[in-house]
Design a binder for these strands. Structure first.
Lengths: 239, 239
DNA sequence: AATCTAATTCAGCGTTTGTTGAAAAACAAG
DNA sequence: CTTGTTTTTCAACAAACGCTGAATTAGATT
């Protein structure tokens, strides 16, 4: 049914061919899934946008769900590689000390926001898709875990060294809040534009990043610096 | 077609009747929309779960989209009222000074997380739905703005007084990050459970709230305290 | 040119979708 | 009971859905 043996590596940079078809389908699916979500986009919507026949989706990807996961995976591997490389560079440069929290966070977020800002419409759509998946009860826990856990564990390990003696839960919840702030940024819903009456723009990702890093760094310090040093102040009155 | 005049206010606490039907549909729709999203839930799914006829959705709500918005609106008004009341109480209690940042944030977030934790399955589903809508390119900007802007503006106004001379954009972006962290928490995707291997649990909302408040308070202070006092340190090298 | 395989097209399968009109039932008022 | 209205049921429409088998074309290999 689908691809059997050698096909992609043999073909050079040609205009047409099966690999070009695959990419056209993936590109169209990426944008449509990001705009309207998985279930409201039909296979026919995708093939019409890609300019190919309906049956080719099932020939190349098996079914709609597998196409979705292929879209998700395609850029994830590339991203994770660079994020790990950046994190490693930051760690090496700071040795023998631990890097600054801001540097660790930057290694985690910059490769994402930079591509969303300057990587073209495909990358922009991809991150909008991530934003939806991350907050989805249906896909959130499973797919994000499957494709992004390794890099997140490395990231948290670096932060663990930056906050020696810190309670594990403080680290994980701090990451959780970062994840929420970051993915809402990817969505670019335009809400902050309405709210601020134009003072802030959702698509000005450089401005967001400039603020995101010190914001979450301060949050990390608030939770992770005091967790083992001042255990008395942990209780709160309300809730 | 739909309701004309008096019907709801006349009927008392009866078991059956049109108002009971409406609520059964809304309850079922709320849970299903939250679990699987708007487009992947069919009208027949909802009416089957509610135990009523398919045609009643269109009789009582007009169409599927209007049912969705009714679900969204039903609890929003109740929520916003309490949040404004709490904020007002915090402001009055602190007069003539501005309240602590933590108190303002608590007035904003506690009514939500408290209901998600202890309000029953309807409330839990409702907030999971909010989480999805907030990060959706399709609905995010429009629906959140329509139903929650008044309370957000009041909240930001209180924070503006807590950070005199603060740049407006710092306030809005700080709120943006809070919104992302908060709504990801509502989603309860279980991702943090996997990530932390059980150390943190998505449904332990009290633990989250205990950490969310100091985390975002520190973030607000990091962005909003220095914005007019130390304008020199604003530039960053990367990005 | 002949042969074989991979890629694409075409037509349509069976279901499910949102929505509707008309009939039936439940209810309120006289 | 009779009348009039509101609510619910029932059956079905047209359109769209994911998916597929068989026929057709294109590409590479002898």
């Amino acid at each position: 049914m689908a691809k059997t043996t050698k096909s992609a590596p043999l073909r050079g940079p040609r205009k047409a061919g099966p690999e070009a078809t695959r990419q056209k389908i993936l590109d169209a699916a990426e944008i449509l899934f990001a705009e309207r979500g998985f279930h409201s986009v039909s296979v026919r919507d995708i093939t019409a946008a890609a300019g190919v026949d309906v049956a080719l989706v099932h020939y190349h990807f098996g079914n709609k769900q597998l196409l979705f996961e292929t879209v998700f995976m395609r850029r994830a591997e590339l991203l994770n590689a660079e994020r790990l490389r950046r994190l490693e560079a930051v760690v090496q440069r700071a040795k023998p000390r631990a890097p600054k929290v801001e540097e660790i966070i930057d290694a985690f977020t910059h490769p994402l926001l930079d591509r969303s800002a300057r990587g073209g419409p495909g990358w922009k759509a991809y991150f909008a898709l991530i934003a939806q998946v991350n907050n989805s009860t249906e896909f959130g826990g499973l797919m994000m875990t499957r494709y992004f856990d390794p890099v997140v564990h490395a990231f948290i390990a670096a932060l663990r060294r930056a906050f020696p003696g810190c309670d594990e839960r403080e680290l994980y919840w701090s990451y959780h809040f970062l994840s929420g702030a970051l993915t809402l940024t990817f969505a670019e819903t335009g809400r902050i534009d309405n709210l601020s009456q134009g003072a802030c723009r959702s698509n000005d990702l450089d401005s967001v990043h400039q603020r995101l890093v010190p914001y979450v760094a301060a949050g990390f310090r608030a939770l992770c610096s005091r967790s083992s040093t001042t255990p008395a102040r942990r209780k709160r009155k309300t809730l």
